[in-house]
Design a binder for these strands. Structure first.
Length: 482
RNA sequence: GGCCCGUUGGAGAAGCGGCUUAACUCACCACCCUUUCACGGUGGCAUUCAUGGGUUCGAAUCCCAUACGGGUCACCA
C-alpha cells in the first residue's frame, strides 16, 4: 500500500553509459525532493537492454552521484531487504508474473509477428497515409491452432498489451499541469520481449509499484510514455505515483543533449578529471531548470534541500552554459582554505612541465597566485606555463620594448640590483623597481615589461613580485641574462 | 506527418491581471583599482515579453489562432 506520508522517489539509470549531466540532474531533483520531504531516495538499475549495457556502468553511475553529494538511501549496493533486488534483470520473475496475470485477464495477448511482418505493416500504413502507424492487432485473436503453427515454425511470442480503445488518459503533471493523451494514438505495445525480458514501460510500472515509489521526476522524453504506463496501473489496479516531467537540457543548437554530442562535455567523470568541484556542479545543475524564490544563487546542499520546491521546476528547456559553470566553479574555488585548495590543485599543478625545478613550497606559492582566477583544475597548466616553461615569440610591441634604450637600462639595473640581493622576497622586488624608478625616472611599461618579457615571454601575467621569489634568484637571473 | 510540450535580453531566469517604461546571475561593454593580466568595485546592456487577434478600465501575466522550437511515435531506456 502506498503511504502518502512516506515519500519515496527514485533515479533509475540504465547502465548503458556513464553518468551525464541530464542524468545527474534527474537524480538531483529526485534527491532534493526526497530529502526536503524526509523521504527516501532510491537508485534502481534498469538493465533490461542487455545488448547495450556497458561494463562498469552501474558502479560508475553510483560513484559519480555520491561524488556530487547525491547519496542514495537504497541502491543495489545498499539494498533494503523489503524492496530488493534493485536490478531489473534480477526481478524477471515478478514481471513475468504480472504479465501472466494480464494475459489471463484478457488485457494482454501473445503476438507472433516477426520483425519483417511488423515492418511491412508499418510501411503499408504509411502508404495509406496513416501518419503514426501502430500495431495492427493481427495476433489479437489467434486460435490455439494458429499459435501452435507459429510455435512449430520456431517463432517466439512477445506479450503485447491490449489497450482500452478510445480511452483518454489524463493526469496532473507536477511540472506541466494537466496533460492528456488518447489511447487511439498509441498502438498495442510490447510488455515482454520474445527473450522473456520486459520492456522499459512495463518494468517501470511494476517496479515503481513494488518499491512504493510515490513521486516520479524524470525527463520530458518520458512524457509520452506516461499514458502507456498509466494503462498498466489501471489494469493492475495499482495506486499511481505522481509524475513530474522536467525539461531536457539542450545544447547551443537547441537540441537535446545527446551522448555523442561533442560540443559540450557531459560526463561527470570528465568534469571531475578536469578539476571541477562537486559543490559547483551540484549548484550549477540545481539552477538549470529550477529557480529559487528569492535571488539567492549560491546554495550548499542543505540550503538547496531547504529551498527546494518542485513547483518551481521550469517547463521550458534550458541551455547548458559552460561560462556560468566556470564562474561558479571559480567562486567555489575561491572559498577554499589554502590547505583545501592545495589538496585540490596539487595533482594538477604537479603535472606541469618544469614543475620539478621548484621546491614544493614554491609550487604551493605558485598555485596560490592563480587561485582567484582559476576556473577549473587543469587550467592551472595553461596559467603556469609562461612561468615554468616560457616560450619567447615576441611581437612588435614586445621587441620594441626590449630594444628601447629605456627598456635596456631598466633591465640592466634590475639584474644588477637583484644579483646583490641576499633574500628574494616580494617586498624586495618591489623596492628594486622603486629604486630604479627614482634613479632613472622610468615608470610604467618600460620599467616593468622588459623584466616580464625576459622572464615569461608574455606581456601579461601575474605580478612580478610574486613570480620572482617563486622562481628564485638563480633561475630568474639566468632568464634575464639570456 | 500524428500526438504532446514549450516560446521573457547572447545564456540561466524572476514575474502568475494594476506595485513592471520587466528583479537577480553569467556573458558582453565602459569606467575605477592596478606596471600588465587576473581579482575586486561602479555603471551600461529588453519602452518590451514569438506574431496576430480577443477578454478587460488595465495583460508579459487570461482566451483563440498562426509561426517557430523541442519531445515522442521500437521486441531502447
Amino acid at each position: 500500500m502506498l503511504d502518502p506520508k512516506n515519500i519515496r522517489v527514485r533515479y533509475a539509470p540504465s547502465p548503458t553509459g556513464f553518468l551525464h549531466i541530464g542524468g545527474a540532474r534527474s537524480a538531483l531533483f529526485n534527491y532534493l525532493f526526497a530529502k526536503k520531504n524526509k523521504g527516501q531516495f532510491i537508485i534502481r538499475i534498469e538493465d533490461t537492454d542487455i545488448e547495450r549495457n556497458v561494463e562498469g556502468g552501474e558502479v560508475s553511475q553510483i560513484r559519480d552521484l555520491k561524488w556530487l553529494g547525491i547519496i542514495p538511501d537504497e541502491s543495489p549496493l545498499e539494498p533494503n531487504p523489503r524492496y530488493a533486488p534493485y536490478r531489473q534483470m534480477e526481478r524477471l520473475n515478478t514481471y513475468q508474473q504480472y504479465a501472466q496475470q494480464l494475459l489471463k485477464q484478457g488485457h494482454a495477448y501473445e503476438c507472433y509477428c516477426s520483425e519483417e511482418e511488423l515492418e511491412r505493416s508499418r510501411e503499408e500504413q504509411l502508404a495509406r497515409g496513416i501518419a503514426a502507424p501502430q500495431y495492427n492487432r493481427r495476433c489479437l485473436h489467434l486460435s490455439k491452432e494458429e499459435k501452435n503453427n507459429f510455435v512449430a515454425q520456431g517463432r517466439k511470442p512477445v506479450i503485447r498489451i491490449k489497450l482500452e480503445d478510445h480511452l483518454t488518459i489524463a493526469f496532473e503533471d507536477m511540472v506541466r499541469g494537466p496533460v492528456s493523451f488518447n489511447n487511439d494514438d498509441i498502438g498495442d505495445w510490447v510488455l515482454i520481449k520474445s527473450n522473456g525480458i520486459p520492456t522499459y514501460n512495463f518494468a517501470v510500472v511494476i517496479d515503481d509499484y513494488s518499491m512504493d515509489i510515490t513521486h516520479v521526476f524524470r525527463g520530458e522524453e518520458h512524457l509520452s510514455n506516461t499514458p502507456k504506463q498509466i494503462q498498466i496501473y489501471r489494469y493492475l489496479k495499482f495506486p499511481m505515483p505522481q509524475f513530474g516531467h522536467m525539461t531536457i537540457i539542450v545544447n547551443e543548437n537547441g537540441k537535446k543533449l545527446s551522448k555523442r554530442d561533442a560540443s559540450i562535455i557531459q560526463f561527470m567523470s570528465q568534469y571531475r578529471d578536469m578539476g571541477y568541484l562537486p559543490e559547483a556542479i551540484f549548484n550549477f545543475i540545481l539552477l538549470l531548470g529550477w529557480s529559487p524564490e528569492g535571488t539567492q544563487e549560491i546554495f550548499t546542499k542543505d540550503q538547496a534541500i531547504a529551498a527546494f520546491d518542485a513547483k518551481r521546476l521550469s517547463s521550458s528547456p534550458s541551455m547548458f552554459d559552460p561560462q556560468k559553470m566556470n564562474w561558479l566553479n571559480n567562486f567555489y574555488l575561491k572559498q577554499l582554505s589554502d590547505d583545501a585548495y592545495w589538496n585540490f590543485i596539487a595533482p594538477f599543478i604537479n603535472k606541469a612541465p618544469g614543475v620539478e625545478l621548484l621546491s614544493e613550497a614554491s609550487v604551493k606559492q605558485l598555485a596560490k597566485t592563480f587561485k582567484d582566477q582559476l576556473a577549473y583544475g587543469i587550467q592551472i597548466l595553461d596559467l603556469v606555463k609562461p612561468i615554468l616553461e616560457p616560450t619567447f615569440n615576441f611581437d612588435d610591441e614586445a621587441k620594441a620594448l626590449l630594444q628601447s634604450q629605456d627598456g635596456q637600462k631598466a633591465l640592466a639595473l634590475f639584474i644588477q640590483k637583484l644579483s646583490q640581493l641576499q633574500e628574494i622576497q616580494g617586498p624586495n622586488i618591489k623596492e628594486i623597481f622603486k629604486a630604479i624608478q627614482s634613479e632613472t625616472g622610468l615608470k610604467g611599461k618600460p620599467l616593468f615589461m622588459p623584466v616580464r618579457l625576459k622572464l615569461t615571454g608574455q606581456l601579461h601575467g601575474a605580478e612580478l613580485a610574486n613570480i620572482i621569489p617563486i622562481l628564485g634568484k638563480d633561475l630568474t637571473l639566468k632568464r634575464l641574462k639570456a
